[in-house]
């Protein structure tokens, strides 16, 4: 009972946060809405008994990703757009249709059958098990991810700094 209520509250917060995050013109508001979404998601992970994932969600997304986004936004000019003007996205109707169609298609068979699918038993995953899986079975993907992050970091620096000798203003006109 309590779990059901908690689930609906968290889900509502998550959906609202996500909607706000994509619809705000003011980027700072958008980031805070996104943080709300991340936090609600972490709550949903707790409800799934995945406490490790929930803690990492808070640590990485709420704690680090959000603050980095804020940091980047605050370094730009014109931090605040006016929230009143709607984001003019063409084709929003089709996007909305797609977004509605996906859950409908997903839920169609159980709805037709009239019985909800049985959720599988939650695996008792501890941090230790996750760690040994990552370090043994999934070690190659882990290393590939490490390389990905290295590459992204190097690339970001290389693109942000530009060419070594010429000052940025002296590039040829585009």
């Amino acid at each position: 009972m309590i779990e059901g209520v908690a689930f609906y509250i968290l889900s509502t917060v998550a959906v609202l946060g996500a909607l706000l995050a994509v619809s705000r013109r003011n980027l700072v508001h958008g980031v805070f809405a996104l943080l709300l979404f991340f936090a609600a998601l972490s709550g949903l992970f707790v409800m799934l008994m995945a406490d490790y994932v929930a803690a990492v969600q808070v640590l990485v997304y709420v704690g680090a990703v959000g603050i980095l986004q804020l940091f980047a936004i605050m370094l730009t000019e014109h931090v605040t757009g006016d929230d009143l003007r709607r984001l003019g996205a063409r084709g929003w109707f089709w996007g909305l249709m797609l977004a509605v169609a996906l859950p409908v298609v997903l839920l169609l068979p159980p709805l037709l059958n009239g019985e909800p699918p049985v959720p599988p038993a939650a695996p008792q995953s501890t941090a230790r098990q996750l760690g040994s899986q990552l370090m043994e079975h999934y070690v190659v993907p882990l290393e590939v991810l490490a390389l990905l992050l290295t590459g992204a970091l190097i690339g970001a620096v290389a693109v942000a700094h530009g060419p070594e000798k010429d000052p940025p203003g002296k590039d040829r006109p585009a």
Partner: peptide
């Protein structure tokens, strides 16, 4: 992960000609 590694490298490589 391999698809992502390819794609992320290409994100950077694509915008490498920063002056343009």
């Amino acid at each position: 992960v391999s698809i992502e590694l390819i794609t992320v490298s290409f994100y950077v490589l694509t915008s490498f000609q920063r002056g343009q």
